[in-house]
Write a protein that binds this DNA or RNA. Structure first.
Lengths: 338, 338
DNA sequence: CTGTTAGCGCTTTCAC
DNA sequence: GTGAAAGCGCTAACAG
């Protein structure tokens, strides 16, 4: 391995001078700089970050913890985050928590162990608070994305759940739907809670009756919609929902498949809408009407906030950025009024 | 920051003993081990990887360099890679090269700088050979995925291009297509070359004439299919293709959009097939008939090979794994025989 | 402007 | 089984 001393020897200067050149110190004679740079070139010297980090305490390494990179929503977040990090000279380690607290903890501990400079974190649920505590204890800056954590007050970038649900519900209302089912996730995920609350509020505001049986919960990890669909379809005609609102894209796609398995036509026999696109290419041919959150921006803005913290630009109170989503009307909602 | 010395003091042992406990050395008295572990717990000590890496030269950090995480093909690769790495106690840094050699070089240099343990690498093209040289010079193990590099003999996991093209072509032939266009990428990408060669071979074998004008190239980065579609459509009827084979998913989707823009119906007026799904969810409603490569396996097997190298399990000759793809017939090919 | 010294947190080596 | 000393590659702090 070529070290700073090899370069120093080659350039006939001290290691310190080489260090100064690497770090673009301004108080280096042009002549020396050139000499050192030549030696660096010649020996193909690349500085050792571990050694540097041992002293400086920074690693130019950021951690992105999401539940599943495979979900296009998170893929876009990852891309936004990486682009932003790259611009600022950072690299990002990514991890899939799979909504699993144990995996999440392991990743957080790894991050601490690596003296990672900061964490961009889509928590699995409210119990992620414990993991946040670890970060706080070790003074590692973090920014939450997509999901809040009960009782944690921090920098965060999230979608506007209330507004998004309203858009979806209004669309359904306009098309004459009144019996709308909500297929949602676990209670300890903030999204789920907020979307459910918004759903209830929208129904109340429209003065439509809510049958408790319409609100069904699924794990976000092992999605089993078959039973739920069966359950819906076996409700007496008069209380059977005419539309389903799924609170995320995987839930939406699974519901779509479950309906197809039972040969229930979308949208003729059942309308379906969900949060976020199931493909990273919005123009990709599709059936599903969705409310699409600006995932790329969630990632890049989240990273922006994180880097602000790290580089000390912004040390003031936690900042919360709430992003609006876009309703993309396709063909999964039947117009009952026609 | 809690260091190994703090733990040592707390447990009334030497730092060395703590180090042995952390590293699960067998020659530690059970009693001491417990004492130390208690101290670790109490102080919430997490070892500093930078310090450790400075000595041991390993970082438990792997680099995944792909062109774009946003492409579902690479998303799946990333997931496969991360899963495998995680199992073995490694973390992965991901980078999007955007088919850009400069970005790629920067990432490679960063990897070296970080003493990354290995690189899983989908190269931008043949000129990535220079970047491979850097890795070789610094003794960093690497495995190529998805694309070969002219003149580089190394561990690699790729799809079977010839077989895949054959499957696609046979499907088109069966449906009566003879004038088939090939929309492909740059010449210095191995995939592109091999797929083109396989296309030509398939056409020859079927004894169909190839009009040179049917073979069109696009950048993989800024895909502009409008002009190409215009060009195809303006060919005299008799030499106008009835089907297009796009050599990747983004090319395929862009072609789909270009056709739609011109109100050309798929498949009635033009058939279209491509490599790889445009959504990570294969069941997602779609039009496109594709040949879907096992991307997850590409990532996990690639990572497997890499870890084998790193951990010295396999130091023998380079291994090449060639994976078969699956033809997924949907609705983008018109049956001319009906 | 440049060099010397010391030390970051850990582990290797060797001694006990 | 355990500890003391030395040093990994780099840079902060000081001296010159």
């Amino acid at each position: 391995m070529v070290t700073i001393y090899d370069v120093a020897k080659n350039a006939k200067v001290s290691a310190m001078t080489v260090s100064r050149v690497i770090n673009k110190s301004p108080l280096i004679k042009e002549e020396t700089r050139i000499k050192v740079e030549k030696a660096i070139q010649e020996l193909d010297y690349i500085p050792n970050r571990s050694a540097r980090s041992l002293i400086s305490k920074d690693t130019k390494l950021l951690s992105l913890i999401i539940t599943d990179i495979t979900n296009p929503f998170f893929t876009q977040i990852a891309r936004g985050a990486e682009d932003q990090a790259e611009k600022m000279g950072y690299q990002v380690v990514f991890s899939n928590s799979d909504e699993n607290m144990a995996k999440e903890s392991a990743y957080i501990r790894s991050s601490v162990s690596r003296s990672i400079d900061g964490v961009l974190f889509a928590p699995s649920g409210d119990s992620s608070a414990d993991n946040i505590e670890i970060l706080k204890k070790h003074g590692i800056p973090f920014v939450l994305i997509d999901r809040e954590i009960n009782g944690i007050h921090s920098d965060i970038v999230i979608g506007n759940n209330k507004e998004s649900v309203e858009q979806l519900m209004n669309h359904l209302f306009e098309y004459g739907h009144q019996r709308i089912a909500l297929l949602t996730g676990p209670e300890d995920v903030s999204n789920t809670r907020e979307r459910e609350a918004a759903y209830i509020e929208a129904m109340k505001e429209a003065d439509y009756f809510i049958d408790e049986r319409w609100i069904q919960r699924s794990s976000l990890r092992d999605i089993q919609t078959d039973q739920i669909i069966n359950y819906y379809m076996e409700l007496p005609q008069a209380s059977r929902p005419t539309a389903i609102l799924a609170t995320n894209n995987f839930l939406g796609v699974n519901t779509m498949q479950s309906l197809r398995k039972r040969n229930i036509h979308i949208p003729k026999e059942m309308s379906l809408v969900c949060f976020d696109d199931p493909s990273p290419i919005p123009e990709y041919d599709s059936l599903l009407t969705v409310i699409s959150q600006p995932a790329y921006e969630l990632g890049s803005l989240g990273m922006q906030l994180l880097l602000d913290r790290i580089e000390g630009v912004e040390t003031s109170a936690p900042r919360k950025i709430v992003l609006s989503a876009e309703l993309i009307i396709r063909h999964s909602v039947f117009n009952l009024k026609l």
